[in-house]
Design a protein around this nucleic acid. Structure first.
Lengths: 146, 146
DNA sequence: ATTAAATAATACCTGTAAGTATTAATTTAT
DNA sequence: ATAAATTAATACTTACAGGTATTATTTAAT
């Protein structure tokens, strides 16, 4: 399971936009590229606008561009805004809170993968997608034609 | 999110049973200890029986004990039987398959936490809970009274 | 001014995971 | 034999994430 479908959509939208940072992209552009259900995609874009990641230009020739610098947008913040990070930070697999003096049976086992996961989210920004710190861009960047 | 509620229940059931390996436990015992909704718990126990992790003794003084040796039961197998492991093994956050020659934008970023998670699941058995390899038992074992 | 092309708001629908209810079957103590 | 205590099977209900539909608003090209 890992993360919700909606978070996945949000990440796909923003990572694609990050790789085409210079270009204003419309919902239609993003739909054609990402194949996320159109109306749902549109709603998510509005949500991402309200969350302040991107900003919308309305009307004819409208579309979306980033509202903030890419190097300030951590993956953790994106997921946090969509589904919250709390369920990832808790113990025994999400929901249960696990008291420090009486850890649950899986506490130790869970600790390492959980930390690796969270640390990656909290230390990686959308800018890292572009500067190749974590990723090769070679096959991923694609030119947008209007 | 990480894993489904049902997987979480299953893991809590089996880890608790593992820590009380010697004792046959009834649905009632487990309900009192784990506070999983009673009827749902009972159905999950039947499911876990059918999956071959535990075996049921029916009728008065019935209950459940393990059907297999603890050191053969990997966490990966438990989750696999409840919700499947495929969504954890795929790329971009679960569902999307990511071609090797054209990896998605998050491919590299995701690789490490995903591997840590899966390797832990695939290398840890219920027996490890008891022998202290990964966990201190001190606070977790609890005597069952009939 | 009008129309076309875009986003925004709001309400609604749907499929599925999670949980509940009912009845049947099994076993053992008495 | 009967009753009590358990698991098994099956069907139903509920909540919510995910997805649709409709209408309003905004902008710019003509």
């Amino acid at each position: 399971m890992f993360i919700s479908k909606t978070s996945e959509h949000a990440l796909r939208i923003l990572t694609y936009m990050a790789l085409n940072y210079e270009t204003q992209l419309s919902a239609r552009n993003l739909f054609e590229e990402l194949q996320i259900p159109k109306r749902y995609l549109m709603r998510l874009l509005t949500d991402l606008s309200k969350s302040g990641f991107i900003k919308a230009a309305r009307g004819r020739n409208g579309g979306y561009v980033f509202a903030r610098s890419l190097d300030t947008i951590y993956f953790s913040e994106i997921i946090d805004s969509v589904e919250g990070l709390l369920t990832f930070e808790g113990c025994v697999l999400g929901s249960t809170v696990c008291p420090v003096d009486k850890p649950c049976a899986m506490h130790q086992i869970w600790e390492k993968p959980k930390q690796t996961f969270l640390e990656t989210l909290k230390s990686t920004t959308l800018a890292d997608l572009r500067n190749g710190k974590n990723i090769r861009l070679k096959y991923s960047i694609k030119q947008i034609h209007h």
